[in-house]
Amino acid sequence: MLVIARHTLRETVRKRLLLAVVVLTALFLLLYGVGSELLARQIRERMLTNVDTALPLAASMLTLMGFYITSFLGALLAIFVSMGSVAAELETGTILTLAARPIRRWEIVLGKWLGLATLIAVYLIVASLGILALTRWATQYTPPSPVPATALLILEALVILSLGMLGSALFSTLTSGAVVFMLHATGWIGGLVEALGSVFDSQAMVTAGILSSMLVPSDALWKGASFYLQPVTVILAQNASPLANPFVSATPIATSMLLYSGLYLVACLLLTVRRFAHQDL
């Protein structure tokens, strides 16, 4: 299993997928850093009186945006590395020499998952550290609890990864990528609908949102992460205001949602193993 994990990791590195992601992320971080610095400079120059309160507030918004994009990139990475994980091996026939070895099918699936999960976790940790470092450099601000936030981002990406592998075991590479991307988007829009529903006091919208979170819990996990990135003052302000920001959450993630996401991930993997184990290659 570890041999497969290592092989999978090496594949993503060798196929230049990782290189492309690293370059693009570096570009994003560069823009983020420059943007933070420019914003900080603006605030320092223009607001002579309230700099001490205005700068952390602006910086917290900026960090939130940065992590929001990181969460999106993490999900995207998870979709791209998972969509071919099973399907492409079947399509090219490389699975034959692999599966004819003295290993069980589940070892192939879990080995691949382990390799890709490592890649995604390392990626998200590095990207998060990048954002934190740049924010600190430009504005001397650090969000309250970045560690649980990053952990939730990783969980979100791993949920997508597992869903993606299931898709890849069921469909062709391209179909799998499209299906999982759309499911992810559904979860995301569902999260917005739910937030707006609570603003407008619409039970139907809230129910639709919750259902979509059940379908793909990625947005719920992002909202959970966002809670840890906002200073107490912002959270209090949000809770007091009737017009909450639909992209973030002012409450911590429910334990039941966390549990559901974990089960969701495991269920996806089990279904992938089940499907792959019964497949004629």
């Binding site: 594949e11 026939g93 490389t94 003295p102």
Partner: peptide, 21 residues
């Protein structure tokens, strides 16, 4: 039993091997 394949070598007809290695 996967161990039945331990002392076995197989060359498939469609001999696609990972090209990036």
């Amino acid at each position: 039993d996967p161990r039945s394949r331990l002392p076995v070598g197989y060359q498939p007809e469609q001999f696609r091997l990972p090209e990036w290695m």
